[in-house]
Design a protein around this nucleic acid. Structure first.
Lengths: 126, 126
DNA sequence: CTTGCCTCTGACGTCAACGTCAGGTTCTAG
DNA sequence: CTAGAACCTGACGTTGACGTCAGAGGCAAG
């Protein structure tokens, strides 16, 4: 498939795909006229890239991780990098859960209709 | 306390605190000479701000949420906004967990020492 | 063959959350 | 009283992941 189709299927922009290639995250086969062509698997790969971006990884980091994903080969460094990022994501999840809980508490406070007094008086209504 | 102390206690830069004030997220009492002074609670507030940033909220969004946190007052819109952001964070957590699990799978693949063949040959070793 | 959409390569624009530097004031320890 | 740290207000710089525009070529339909 060509770049437009991949963009649609993966839910990203054409520009993003070119950018991924520029960053070494995505490869394409070029036709004689220079147009990019992709296999079906590229859809999955693009989505993985998106998820890693969403997890806060930078292009450089992703570029360092993907080769060992492809080759299923690991050096001590790549393994360290993989688990380091895994831990980072894990901490991020923990933090997000805390933030969500805090938001929940806030919602609880602002939504409680039985403490109507605070809406007007905002005095020490325990 | 003054801005430097707050920065240290909250673990952010002085510049960041001034930026928060500029964005309407943090208030300070000015001394006659113009220096900012904060109460102890500011430490908590700054950390909440940081967590919301970490959860992907923009300054504008935080600025819209904080007043109803402060006043513990809620309009229908503020309630909608609060739970909308809560849902966003929730989806983000789900997505992060998926990404983490995917990383785990990758780590499993690259770390497995019993499939030594793929390190050199990378053939169809099931 | 032409119309119209898709694609190409630069290359500059954007936006947010600060970093950083300049030039001047204020506070505090000795 | 004085040196040095901390603070002030602008205001420009930075970074990453793209958006967007310009100008030129490619491809299927009629």
């Amino acid at each position: 498939m060509r770049i437009g189709e991949l963009a649609t299927k993966a839910g990203v922009s054409v520009r993003a795909l070119r950018y991924y290639e520029e960053q070494g995250l995505l490869r394409s086969v070029r036709s004689t006229s220079g147009q990019r062509h992709y296999a079906e698997e590229a859809v999955d790969r693009v989505q993985l890239i998106q998820h890693l971006y969403a997890a806060g990884l930078a292009s450089r980091t992703i570029a360092e991780l993907l080769p060992c994903v492809d080759a299923k080969v690991s050096t001590p460094e790549s393994r360290a990098r993989l688990s380091a990022e895994r831990e980072r994501i894990d901490r991020q999840i923990t933090e997000l859960i805390q933030t969500r809980d805090r938001l929940d508490a806030i919602i609880e406070l602002t939504e409680r209709p039985d403490v109507t007094g605070c809406l007007v008086k905002a005095s020490g209504a325990a």
